[in-house]
Amino acid sequence: MNDSNPLISLKGITKTYGKGDAAFQALCGVDLTINRGEFVAIMGPSGSGKSTLLNLLGCLDQPTGGSYRYGSVHVENLSTDQRSLLRRHAFGFIFQGFNLLARTSAADNVAMPLIYHGVSMKERRQLAKKALETVGLATKLKSVPSELSGGQQQRVAIARALVTSAGTLFADEPTGNLDSHTTVDIMNMLTRLNEQDGITILLVTHEPEVAQYAQRVVVVKDGLIESDTWNRKPNLASA
């Protein structure tokens, strides 16, 4: 990968909520380029537009203006269904609230995205087991979320995001509900996934300690990028 062929390229992205006097401009023209294999933390105070930016990057939302290219795809031209398919094949999501299906085993939770890939039940079981082994939960296949700790639940959610071999992982405050000790576990795991498996990670957080784990920190304020700094240069880009 080189800079001339970025994974994600935003140009003049704007997002306006509401209409008329009640209109609120969450993003006022964001330019951002992210290469494959980067680990980017998006920071900023609440209301700064950082979550909006992540939702737009994750194709959960459509920008009001500007252009968004993912690889060679012009995302702003995609229909709702096409965006669904892009998410299905290229993206993985983890959330602050874990968002696991209640009363459903860890293995079934992890296997859930594969249903939409048309994978057979047998193969789903194997892939789910493998993904749970990757996050160190090989012994908890049958446990339901209520039997798991917060950190374990978030690891199940990571396994769910990884099971489809998605290249890009979107994490919205993934450690927001976790204690500091578990936060370290989860962040180490994300770092390992980024460094060993080359997964691109985009993470929203308001905690500087969490942002430290990322290679690059983008600070958003009042709908604009205030700063874009590197903690350390990515291994893969230099390799």
């Binding site: 959960l60 398919l85 998410r87 968002n99 995205p113 939409y116």
Partner: peptide, 16 residues
Amino acid sequence: TREIGVRLAIGARARE
């Protein structure tokens, strides 16, 4: 609703 949100996020289409 949250379950539906998760399903949509991981790429389920409206018709699914």
